[in-house]
């Protein structure tokens, strides 16, 4: 069964062209580097989309997975179920103009342009481990800002116990949404409020110092480094505050395989494969062939372990 939902944004909510064309300049101005915008785009090195990023104490010192692997091996079912499809099929995906609807248990609901969303935030680099539920992992230098900072701006009410996120539903642009063997669209993910407000949880707009490649979830995606990758929803168009736990896409697809929490946990196997070990991609050719141990909460237990105190994680997986 497909969940139907009007995919179109009313024309009244579409950002005027003149405004969205300023986005690049805008981001640079925010960073106090307006002068850079005067340079022709070709002269700007790839890594200077976001110059002078703030470093973060939350970053790992591990060597990041090479750029071509991060951008050519993606799970983004909206663009097909193979790992190579997103890089090919997302090429013409339009990420400008972009807006995000904020609704539910919140004081300031509304539809905000991406520029409005990003405006007050200082972008920083967060080098995080990413562990996929399929037992492979990468290290990715994200560019983003804490989700908590954004959520606070809209004033979640006391009823906001969970935050749900939705990916764009636009089969014309996302061929995977037309496939016979596909998920219930739009893709929905969710977090408990305290998870969403944790400083490790970020919204990313870039990686490797450049604007987020389309196959990696442009223009705005979630990154929750202690959970399996499918929780880190891509190309977000809606953030919904709710009192009840949202029904997430993979959770509906296979309730015994993909839980709501989806915390990285070597002690709780996926029914079809073990989660004790993982293949860390990148690095040397030979080292990426073999498996290494998976760490509880993907190595972030010290920071987020307390969120799950007293819970039976084999049941709340």
């Amino acid at each position: 069964m497909l969940i139907q939902r009007p995919a179109d944004i009313p024309s009244s909510e579409i950002t005027p062209k003149s405004v969205y064309l300023q986005r690049r300049q805008f981001i640079q101005n925010t960073l106090g580097l307006g002068a850079l915008a005067l340079l022709p785009e070709a002269l700007q090195a790839k890594s200077s989309d976001f110059p002078c990023l703030k470093k973060s104490p939350y970053s790992t010192s591990e060597t990041p997975t090479p750029y071509d692997k991060v951008t050519n091996y993606n799970n983004f079912y909206e663009f097909g179920s193979s790992k190579s499809a997103p890089a090919l099929l997302a090429k013409y995906f339009k990420t400008t103009p972009w807006s995000v609807r904020i609704d539910g248990a919140v004081e300031k609901p509304g539809t905000y342009t991406l520029e409005d969303i990003l405006k007050p935030h200082t972008l920083e680099e967060r080098i995080y481990r990413l562990r996929c539920v399929e037992a492979w992992s990468m290290v990715i230098p994200w560019v983003g800002f804490p989700l908590a900072d954004l959520l606070k701006r809209f004033g979640p009410t006391a009823n906001a116990k969970y935050v749900a996120f939705e990916t764009l539903h636009d089969p014309e642009q996302m061929p995977g949404q037309k496939s016979r063997f596909s998920l219930d669209w739009p893709y929905v993910e969710g977090l408990r409020m305290d998870e969403a407000m944790h400083p490790l949880t970020i919204l990313a707009v870039g990686l490797y110092g450049e604007t987020l490649p389309k196959q990696n979830g442009a223009p705005l995606r979630l990154v929750v480094p202690w959970k399996y990758g499918f929780k880190s929803i891509k190309s977000i168009v809606r953030i919904h505050f709710t009192e009840t736990r949202p029904a997430t896409t993979w959770g509906r697809m296979g309730p015994d395989e993909y839980g709501f929490y989806a915390n990285v946990n070597p002690a709780v196997d996926h029914p079809r494969w073990s989660q004790k070990t993982e293949r860390k991609l990148g690095g040397g050719f030979f080292s990426s062939l073999f498996k290494q141990e998976t760490r509880f909460l993907n190595g972030y237990a010290e920071q987020v372990g307390h969120l799950y105190a007293g819970m039976d994680l084999s049941k709340a997986f």
């Binding site: 692997k69 050519n72 091996y73 790992k83 492979w136 293949r279 050719f285 062939l289 073999f290």
Partner: peptide, 13 residues
């Protein structure tokens, strides 16, 4: 392809 390291991001898979 293995000797040229052209087996993609996940050569084991």
């Amino acid at each position: 392809n293995a000797s040229l390291e052209q087996l993609g991001a996940n050569p084991a898979e």
